[in-house]
Each structure stands twice: as structure tokens, then as C-alpha cells.
Design a protein around this nucleic acid. Sequence first.
DNA 1: TATGCCTTATAGAGCATAGCTATCAAGGGA
DNA 2: TCCCTTGATAGCTATGCTCTATAAGGCATA
Lengths: 300, 300
Amino acid sequence: MQTRLVEYFLALEREGHFARAAAHCNVSQPTLSAGIVTLETQLGKRLIRRDRKYAGLTAEGEAILPWARQLVAAAEALGQAAETARGPLKGELRLGAIPAAMPAIGCLVAAMQARHPGLNVSIRALTSRQIERDLAAFELDAGLTYLDFEPPAHALSVPLYVERTMLVSAVDGVAVPDPLDWAGLAILPLCLLHQGMQNRRILDARLAERGLALRPLVTADSYVALLGLVQQGRLCSIIPDSHATLLDGLSWARTHAMPQADEGSRVGVIVSDSAPMGPLAQAVLGVARELRLPQGFRTG
Amino acid sequence: MQTRLVEYFLALEREGHFARAAAHCNVSQPTLSAGIVTLETQLGKRLIRRDRKYAGLTAEGEAILPWARQLVAAAEALGQAAETARGPLKGELRLGAIPAAMPAIGCLVAAMQARHPGLNVSIRALTSRQIERDLAAFELDAGLTYLDFEPPAHALSVPLYVERTMLVSAVDGVAVPDPLDWAGLAILPLCLLHQGMQNRRILDARLAERGLALRPLVTADSYVALLGLVQQGRLCSIIPDSHATLLDGLSWARTHAMPQADEGSRVGVIVSDSAPMGPLAQAVLGVARELRLPQGFRTG
DNA sequence: TATGCCTTATAGAGCATAGCTATCAAGGGA
DNA sequence: TCCCTTGATAGCTATGCTCTATAAGGCATA
């Protein structure tokens, strides 16, 4: 069983295109094409549906997909383990983080690189569900996400901090009642994350408990976009307090406590709980356990 | 990364001998020797300590051992998944079972082969600790063992039956008091399993709670050996009631209830809980869940 | 209808590598 | 000293992966 051929298969599944998959694997198109045929011959099944162009996987192809991913992940882990049997880690650490946790990721990455200077880090902003999915598909080494809501199966986690939310408005913008109650919040002109995003789902759930619903005038998928909207003065937004550090120097922004000191949402590092655990995952968990976040991140 | 070379490495680690490892891999000794060198070159580390003969693994070799096992297990699982994407399983199912559970393994295997006619099954009698170790090393697909004592981590289980023990003696052998109490048990001439075996540890623990200890005159590692000793008439033994079915036709044997209806020990199937779960493990769990054991195996 | 492009498969050559047999070198024991 | 065990080396063969070049089928457009 050639790991290389399985990589061809996975690249083809990702790209949906022979030539692009070949380029991604740094081989020629005929090489990848022949490699797929070889793999199909060795396994005794057709994996790809073709009618003059790529047309998805066969049922057998879909069936072996998880095992193919595990195989290349295992090969990768073996190389990592050999390279780092002693001494610092090398290679690339693939991190996924929810947007709300982005302010914290700098601390985590800095701590990782302090411990392992040769390590490259690749950060992707993802939804919590994408993080879960990509961890299972071995396309991420670790994730930074919520620990309490719909926690993924087969995952180990280390809590880092508790996120609370706050309302932010422009100094010369809409008037925010003080103190703010839930009903008052619901009638404010708001811009929020898209409805599918977990942070938004949590917020919606809190209001739904009280029979209220938010009707944001604008939705976006990034807090930077929300802050840009707030800066215009016409809207308010609700953002995690971890972003407060980013707002410290902003003269135009004003923050308000949310209607009720909510219990907060635990945010932490998760890795796939496979046996044995890869060296990268081990390292991330180890660093996360010892991590001390700066002021502005509450731990309980 | 060549799966083949990693198999060479694992075979060498198991056999501790280049030529034997090569024979086990169905290749010549120089081939395996060169394969190890190639693997060491690709990984950039020496894996084997050599001074004119095999002298164990280096630290790096030990470090990558779990990942090497996972890699070949993943390759194996990929082949299995492709072969059995639809239709019955093929290949070899490697089962480990504690001696006490051997009478039940026939039912499990029969049910597996009824569902998957092409499946070969290889059964090994092992201690519960060996089962746990070999599952982690991907050298077993499933185990039949105790579920309640020192359950292994990273394992999924399905309970099958509850094992209770009974005393067995020869009809014309030593007199057994009726009813039997713990103190009376302790002074009987007994033959039992070796002290390290888990069934024996459980029994010893039960007596230790009452300040008693068994001093068997003979110990063995198989119930057949114990029954042979009992047949001589001089000794009694304590065996699981699952063996009662085997004694049904024996005129020379007499069974006695143990001093106290003990709570019994749950026995069931365990598989390694890795993601994704191999097709063999899935099949064993599925069959075990639907398995109906015959009379003589209590389920609660 | 003809042309051109996009996509995948095929052909043939070159090279790397894994396999074999035969043999050698270094210890260890009789 | 001789012989056996153990692993490494040499030389050769065969397999097979990779490349470039090209063919073939479909689709859009002139």
C-alpha cells in the first residue's frame, strides 16, 4: 500500500479535478491519473466515477475516505515522531480557531513557538463545526473553540478562558440605555454574526429563553467587519470581551455590560483523541495546559 | 512513506532477529536489512541498535513504535474497507479471549461467520492484560474479557454475559461441606489458576475481604488442566459456571455452589476505540450486540 | 459544420528502487 | 583452529513510478 497513491486519491477528492490535484501533489497529471488507476487495481474497486471528467467518488470511494485520511495522517505522524523523537518540533502546525477566539490565538502560538522554535503555524478562521469536521478528517492538528456547546466526540480538550460578551457602540452613535436589559437589547439597532455561527446561536438561545429575538440590521462573519459598522455610529454590536484588548486604544468605541452577568462560555484547545496521539497534538495540549493568558481573559 | 518498510521494522521489533523477521515478511534477509536502512534514511534517524547482531531499538525507534503500528493498522483497515465496502467481510479476524471466556467464544465466532461467511478467525488465549496491550498495538481486532476490572482506556465494549464461579470436585474425591462457607473453602485442597491471572486475582480479592487466603496445592494456566487434576479425586477447583456446559456429560464431576451468591463479573467484547473504527471492529460489535447466548450464560 | 479548448487517458522512454542469489566479515563457542 | 551464527555487501534483474508528448471525447463558439 503506497501512501503516495492514497495522497493522490485524497487530493483528487479535495480538488475534484485531476490536473489541479496533480499540481497540488507536485506531480504531472498523467502520473496522478495512473496512480489512481494503480490504487483502484490494488484495492480491487473503482473509487472514482468518470464520464469524460471527474464526477465524484463511487460508493466504495466514499467508504474508504475516512481510512484513507487516517492512513496519510498516520504516515505524517510517523514522520513527525521520528523527526522530533528528541528536540523541538518541526514542520507545520495546522490550527483552526473560531473568530471569537482569534485574540487569544496569538498567545497560544507564541507559547508554542517559544517552546518549539522550528515550528511553522498555519491558522485558519473556521466555524466550530468546521473545526470539528477538519479535526476528524486529519486536516487540522488542533482547534481553538467552544468546549461546552455540542462538544465533538473523540476529542480531548484543555480549557483556556471563559468568554463573556459585551455590547459595543460608537461614542457619538446610538444611545444605549444604562442599565441595559434584555428587552432593551432586542430593540437596539444591531449588527451581529451570521445566524449559523455558533457565537450567534448562543446569543439567540439566551434571548429565546426570555421569549425575545434579535433582529440585526446587518450580519457579517467577522468581528472586524462588525466593528467597522459600529464605527459608523448607526449600529451597535455584541462582541466577546476578549476583543476588549483590541478596543483599548480606540477613542470612538464605548463598551457596555450585557444585561446580565451571563455564565460565559468556556473556550479552549481541542485535539483529536486518537491513540496514539500525534506529537503535534501532544505539544499543543502541553503548552495549552501551562498557558497563562494576559489580563482580559478570565479563567473562570 | 512505504508501508512495506514499516512492516519490516515492526517484524524486526517483534522477532528480534533479522532473518526470522525476513521470513515472517516473506522476503529474503538482505531485502529486509536493506529495507530497514532505507527506512532509517527516509526518517533521518537510526532506529535499530546493532553491534554485530540485533541489539534492540534506539530511543527514536522506541518513540516511533506506536505510530508505526498505527500506520500499518491504517493501511490494513483501508484494504479491509475497500474489500468490504459492500458485501461480507473477508480476511482474518484476530480475536483474543481470556481462558474463562473460551466456552462463549464459539457462539461469537459462529455468529460472526454466519454473518460473514468469508471471514477467517484466529483465536488466541490471553490474559486480560495481554488483550489490552495487543489491542493497543493493533495486533488484535477484538477481545473477549472482563469489563469491570481495570477496564482499558480507549476501548468500546459490549457486555455478553455475567460470569459466576462454582466449585467442582470429583464424585469419589474429597468431601465438600454443604453448605460451603468461605472459611471452609479456604481449607479445601484446591488447584487454581496462576496467581497473576485475573480470574484468580478476583477470587483472591474476594477472600482477602474476609481476611482469608487460598493456598492452592497446584496452579495452572488452563481450566482443562484444572479439570484433569480434579478428575484424579485429590483436589477441588473453582471454575466459571460458563464451563458447566462442558461438564454436563461428565459422570465423575460434581459441582457445588460457591459460599455466597457473588455479584459475578461481566464478560464482553471490547475493541479499540479509534476513529474511524475498522470494519472488523464494527462487525464484531454489531454481532455482539445482537448475540443471544445459549442456556448456561446468564446475562445479568 | 468546423474549430478550439478543456479534461482525461494512453504510449514510450528513463530512472529509481525493491527484490533476489551469492558471498563476505565479525564474533562466539567447541 | 574450525565452524556456526548473524548481519552486511555486491551484482544483477524486474518492477514500476515518473516524465513528455499525444490522442480522444465532449462542449462551446464561430
